[in-house]
Nucleic acid binder design. Structure first.
Lengths: 149, 149
DNA sequence: CCGAAATTCCCCACTTTTCCCCACACTTCG
DNA sequence: CGAAGTGTGGGGAAAAGTGGGGAATTTCGG
């Protein structure tokens, strides 16, 4: 089971590539190295899941009935934005254009390790999010910045 | 076991041919490469199943109660319009005319990977489908992204 | 039963995108 | 102070996406 923590400022080049922080890379559980799934997250950020963590979601969705209209919509909405990613030889991921656009990411990004996932933010969006949600930020920070949790 | 994800914008040429996105092609499980079944889906889209997933579906439909009206409808819609397809040497499928007509597909299509199947939509139909949904991506994602979801 | 028209299928060609490799500056650590 | 590892950028080969021509097969009228 992977466990991510920390905040990092990184840049995305004009090909949409982002180097994964070394500390996060090393926190990926054995057996899922190099294989990730990226998708839309809440509050206009992106979620990056190591492959084993994503498998948990997929197993759940597979169990849904496709005779139910709402559950069909559910599966489509979830998987429409998901993409498999592998690290290249420089330990980078290439983020799909639609997702960069959704998250309003231009060049600079904030990368957060949040328990079982990695979040990728536009600095401007994250700034605004923090201003509007001070309590939530404190809660998150408490969990993330615990000494060697 | 195949696992499809992602959204792709592709074109159908005037011969009814559609190139299958490479990422979806690679997600087809070993043993079912190149063999598909296409049929009518719900909400005026088309379902494309790799051969192994179709076999699973067929087994599932066999177990359905024929006393239930919705399940009878489902079985008929699925099998009445089903057709075997093979990839040509350029990794394309040729979609039967009556299915193109059913899905109101002209030239451009949206291809969705939804777990065990591939969906093919007219962009206009998919647009309207999304607009008519009461739920948003956020409310849906809330249910699955929770730890131990 | 035969031949012309239409359809299907296979192959080839072009354009664009993706991916892989190399290069280099800066940081960290011994 | 040097070496190994990290963060950033770009160029070129390979693959993916798209379109069209022509041979083989089928269809249908005569």
């Amino acid at each position: 089971m992977s466990s991510f923590k920390g905040r990092y400022s990184y840049s995305v080049d004009n090909k949409g590539r982002l180097a994964l922080p070394a500390k996060l890379r090393k926190a990926v559980s054995a057996g899922a190295e190099g294989n990730f799934v990226i998708t839309r997250g809440f509050e206009r950020c992106l979620y990056l899941y190591p492959h084993d963590e994503w498998a948990r979601l997929e197993k759940y969705v597979r169990g849904l009935s496709f005779l139910d209209a709402q559950q069909r919509f559910f599966g489509r909405a979830l998987f429409e934005w998901a993409a498999d990613l592998q690290l290249d030889s420089q330990s980078r991921i290439t983020i799909p254009q639609e997702l960069l656009k959704y998250a309003a990411i231009e060049n600079e990004v904030i990368v957060l390790g949040v328990i079982d996932r990695i979040e990728i933010w536009s600095p401007a969006v994250y700034d605004e999010y923090q201003r509007n949600q001070p309590e939530t930020y404190e809660t998150i920070a408490e969990r993330v910045f615990k000494p060697q949790g």
